[in-house]
Amino acid sequence: MVTPSAEARLRELALMLPPPPTPFGAYVEAVQIGPLLFLSGMLPVVGHVPSYVGLLGQDLSVAQGYDAARTACLSGLSAARAQLGSLDRIRTIAKLGVYIATTSDFREHPKVADGASELLLQLFGETRIPPRIVLGVSSVPLGMPIEIELVLEIEH
Rank of each mutant, 00 (worst) to 15 (best):
V112P: 01
P141L: 12
Q122W: 07
S104L: 08
E12T: 06
T71F: 00
L120N: 02
P19T: 12
A116Q: 01
V53L: 08
D105Y: 12
P18V: 12
L121F: 13
D59P: 08
T71Q: 14
L119Q: 06
A6K: 00
R91P: 02
S104H: 12
I133R: 15
K95M: 08
G85Q: 11
L36R: 13
Y27K: 09
V62I: 13
G54D: 06
G97E: 11
G25H: 13
R11V: 15
L142G: 01
P44F: 07
G54W: 04
R81F: 02
H156D: 14
G76T: 10
L17E: 09
P50A: 03
S104D: 15
T127E: 15
G34Y: 02
S117W: 11
I100L: 09
L96R: 02
G54R: 01
V28R: 14
G115E: 06
S104A: 14
E126S: 09
K95I: 00
P35H: 08
A79L: 10
A101G: 10
I148F: 02
G41V: 10
Y27D: 11
L96M: 03
V151M: 11
G85R: 08
A82F: 05
P19L: 14
S61H: 11
R91S: 11
L56K: 03
Q83L: 04
Q58D: 07
M16H: 13
R11C: 02
E108F: 03
L119A: 06
Y99W: 08
V140N: 05
A94M: 00
L39C: 06
I148W: 03
D88F: 04
S86C: 05
A101N: 03
M144K: 00
S61V: 11
V112C: 09
Y66E: 05
R107G: 03
L15R: 10
R91L: 08
G115M: 05
A68H: 02
V62S: 06
P20T: 11
H156W: 04
M1H: 05
L15I: 15
E149Q: 12
G65H: 03
E7N: 04
P4D: 07
F38H: 13
T71E: 12
I90H: 01
L123E: 08
Q122C: 08
Y66D: 01
Q64A: 13
L135N: 14
P21H: 09
L13W: 12
G65M: 03
V28D: 13
C73L: 07
A69C: 05
P44W: 05
T92M: 06
V151R: 04
L37H: 01
S104N: 12
L123I: 01
E126Q: 04
L123Q: 02
E149D: 13
S104K: 11
